[in-house]
Simulated scan of single mutants.
Amino acid sequence: MAVNMTGDRASSAPVPVAMVVAILIAGSVATVVFDLFGQALSPLAGYAKLAPVGLANGTIKTLFGATVPGAGHLLHFLIGLIGYPLGWILVALPLSDRLTPWVPKILIAIAYGIGLWIFALYIMAHWVVGMPAFLGFTGITWVALIGHVVYAVTFLVTHDWLERR
């Protein structure tokens, strides 16, 4: 079923509700798995703990001059729920379908996760916030790489499963 932004059925600008719901659910699941891996499993295994909220707060402070309590958590959540999924749906998937349709989607998801890692630790952390590129290639760098790949693969698997239902 398609609805427009006012909730009426069959309009000139239909929004496939099932697709939006699948994207939001897959983004939520992938964000939870990313946080579980980076903030619990990795430290339990003796590796670095991810701090995505710290980077989000740094971004907010750089862009707006200050941050408020909860803003970093909200930004981190919105990026995982909406931002990264839109990058997959609107950029990565169409490009891969057009340029490399023979490549399995799991490999495209791994490449997308690496792209997310570059975006987070080079573009955002370095260019926007002013931290060392890739956080100086410390332990957190490699946990973040795995975490972003885990995010992308989790999103792919969850979204594809939901779309098949």
Rank of each mutant, 00 (worst) to 15 (best):
P104W: 06
I146Y: 13
I146G: 10
V153K: 11
G83A: 05
H76W: 10
V128P: 05
F119M: 12
V103F: 10
M124T: 13
T138A: 14
L145T: 08
H76S: 08
Y151N: 04
L135D: 03
F137I: 01
I110D: 07
W117S: 06
V150I: 15
H76V: 03
G115Q: 05
V103T: 07
V149C: 14
A92D: 00
I146V: 15
T141R: 01
I114D: 12
L107P: 13
I79Y: 02
I114S: 04
I106K: 05
I106G: 02
I106Q: 05
A133N: 14
A92F: 09
F77I: 14
P85K: 04
A125N: 09
I108P: 00
I108H: 07
L145C: 11
T100M: 11
I114E: 08
P104D: 04
G136K: 00
T141Y: 02
Y151Q: 03
G80A: 07
L95N: 11
K105E: 05
G136N: 01
R98Q: 13
A144M: 03
W127H: 12
Y122T: 14
Y151L: 14
A125Y: 06
I146K: 12
V128W: 01
I146T: 15
T100F: 07
I123C: 15
I89P: 00
L145D: 05
L99D: 02
T100L: 13
I110A: 10
P101A: 08
W127K: 15
V91H: 06
W102N: 11
P104Q: 09
G83W: 04
W102K: 15
A133D: 11
F134D: 09
L99Y: 14
L95Y: 14
V150W: 02
G87M: 09
L95W: 15
Y112L: 14
H76P: 06
G136H: 05
G139R: 07
G136Y: 03
W117Q: 00
A125L: 11
T141C: 01
I108Q: 11
F134K: 08
P94H: 02
W88L: 08
T138M: 12
T138I: 07
